[in-house]
Amino acid sequence: MTTPAREFLKGCRNALPVTLTFSVLFVVVGAHSQASGLDLAQGLALTALVFAAPAQMAATDLIAQGAWLPALLAIIVINFRFLLMSASIAPYLGKPGRGRLLASVQMLSASTFATSFIPLREGSLQYPLSYFLGVCAASFPTAVIATATGYLVQDAIPPWLQQTMTMVLPIYFVTFLARVWPRTRFLAAGVLGLVLTPVANSLLPGFGLIVTALAVAALLMLLEPKACPKTI
């Protein structure tokens, strides 16, 4: 029998690749915070409150240069993508109370979003918020602990291992795209996102992901057959 606890644990299990990646990625973030002149509390607060490695890396770089306003703008621009992720996942989280939603939403990141979205969209979960919380419960504390570890033990991980571990998450995301086969329109959205986002990022730094996602979605909506819109 399915219970909220079981779906929470399922979320924890499915977050294993995220946990592995975060345990390396946020060690790097923590070490970077230390090198940029933040104290331990500030490094931990950045992870716990901003919770987005790309935004944190950019902000700590700028803080080290004393560029306070650009650092803030970097966080705002890079985390703007959460607006779209939140809007995408919201319809699938069921109807939990507002308090539970507000408490859990802080742990929404690109990784927890992608790990949760596909199972939620498949509709196989009876307690979607419990599943999402399971994914977050395995990921978020890992990020905080890894930040502290990186801050205290700089350069603990050799560069070749860092490079390999940073590929864990993208490879994991490929498995999500493969799961939509043979629904070619969703697959096309993924492939277009893969190809166009780096180009858009080079033209509009920080906004590439969200601009590409909106453009691809709009294009595919336009290309949908009008007579049978539910055949995707």
């Binding site: 277009l192 996102g193 893969l194 709009a218």
Partner: peptide
């Protein structure tokens, strides 16, 4: 339509995260 729009956008985001990771350092 709004839900399908966000579904498409989500897969584009997942692809975009993969693409961004492949372009190391973000410099195309």
């Amino acid at each position: 339509d709004l839900l399908r729009f966000f579904d498409y956008a989500t897969y584009a985001i997942i692809g975009g995260i993969i693409g961004s990771a492949l372009v190391s350092g973000g410099e195309l």
